[in-house]
């Protein structure tokens, strides 16, 4: 499974490359602007795009997600410190991982998404680090988490 990282902080991107490899996935490349990202998305058709909202050329991530969502077989996951900026439909993306995520939060989200993309659906609830869009949650038939709270 080929993954494109779209992130303007290169150190954050470098660390994500390790997490991608650990999840058994392959990094296709790192884009730091929307122009670079769109070129790779359209030419290489990655299976998954990890997408920051704020890039080197401004808050252009949402437009990238909308364009990628129109392509067959390209799934998008937002990683953002600005959850409020995301539209209700997540611009067609799977969902988002809120920054600052923890190492294990991101690992869990990647593992879950890799399983769902491979199997075409979920066999367990999404990890708490991952907020799914309602469209993808329905598509993957993701079970709800049960809490033992009173």
């Amino acid at each position: 499974m080929r993954v494109l990282i779209v992130e303007d902080e290169v150190l954050v991107a470098a660390e994500i490359e390790f997490l991608i490899a650990e999840a058994g996935l392959q990094t296709l490349g790192v884009a730091i602007s929307s122009e670079e990202a769109l070129k790779i998305v359209e030419q290489e058709r990655p299976d998954l795009v990890l997408l920051d909202v704020h890039l080197a050329d401004g808050p252009t991530g949402i437009e990238i997600a909308r364009r990628a969502a129109k392509l067959q077989g390209v799934a998008v996951l937002f990683m953002t410190a600005n959850r409020r900026r995301l539209p209700d439909d997540f611009a067609g993306a799977i969902g988002s991982v809120a920054k600052p995520y923890t190492e294990w939060g991101m690992r869990g989200a990647l593992r879950f998404i890799a399983e769902c993309l491979r199997d075409g659906g979920a066999t367990r609830p999404a990890p708490s680090s991952l907020e799914l869009s309602s469209a993808w949650s329905r598509k993957w038939l993701v079970p709800e988490v049960g809490h033992s709270t009173h």
């Binding site: 902080e9 150190l11 954050v12 470098a14 660390e15 390790f18 410190a81 920054k99 600052p100 995520y101 923890t102 190492e103």
Partner: peptide, 14 residues
Amino acid sequence: VKNNLQLISSLILL
């Protein structure tokens, strides 16, 4: 603040 915390975590991990 959130982006800086992300950067700090990534630095330590790297």
